[in-house]
Design a protein around this nucleic acid. Structure first.
Lengths: 129, 129
DNA sequence: CTGTATCCGTATAGATACTG
DNA sequence: CAGTATCTATACGGATACAG
């Protein structure tokens, strides 16, 4: 889709400077996003929430192997990135619901394209030896 | 995305003191890919090579701030993932050309979709907690 | 020119135990 | 139920020196 002009430079046909300055990629939003989503639990969390909202313990049970601490950290990070909305119901005991925001939902499409590529080209993470 | 891990490949004997560690993200190819591309230098390297092939020192000069060590590690990792092809011309002094493979080129399209989302939603790299 | 070898500081991930 | 606190292990990134 490199021909589609949205006013936003595309990765494919963007005219690149002779020299890429540090400031442009050190805080590159794309690299930052990939870095965030590339941690161990973010993607599976996003996909589960893409199906329907979940409570904390639901996620904890469905995501095999995740610790409470890591699940909390993952959800807080996704919330801070604006991908997930956290809703506390002041009941006793407390109930917290996590759901995708609208941008979060919108991200799943593009991510699917990358996922398709990954599956098609069998980009298993080989040991990088 | 299941947690089925077929086993950690053995760290076979290599006299190399420095070894790229086996990552924990082998379970999901998509997460593994995002994790790989989310490091500090992979994306800018891919984009530059998407424009045209480069020699080592060209990349070293155009990617401001990268050390020889990190550039080497980045290129080796991309090569191991099948995204980049490394061609050595046996001249004196040696000349090495790096270029995208066909799958590597094909990945830039899907990545652009994610990049568009990132720019549109201003997913700047915020501190992660 | 194209890398390796060593050493080092920091960031991230996880296990376990505890709590409002 | 939904988290924190503490502690540890390891991965990542960088500086510098050296080599084929």
């Amino acid at each position: 889709m490199s021909g589609t002009n949205t006013g936003v430079p595309s990765l494919v046909d963007a005219p690149l400077a002779e020299r890429v300055p540090v400031s442009e990629y050190a805080a590159c939003p794309v690299t930052g996003l990939l870095h965030r989503l590339g941690d161990k639990w973010s993607l599976v969390t996003l996909v589960l929430l893409g199906g329907r909202p979940h409570r904390f313990n639901e996620l904890h049970q469905r995501i095999e192997g995740v610790s409470q601490r890591m699940l909390t950290r993952t959800l807080r990070a996704l919330e801070s990135d604006g991908l997930v909305r956290r809703t506390v119901h002041p009941t006793v005991p407390p109930s917290v619901e996590y759901a995708l925001t609208s941008p979060g939902q919108a991200l799943l499409g593009p991510l699917s394209q990358v996922a398709d590529w990954a599956v098609e080209h069998r980009t298993d993470a080989r040991p990088t030896l």
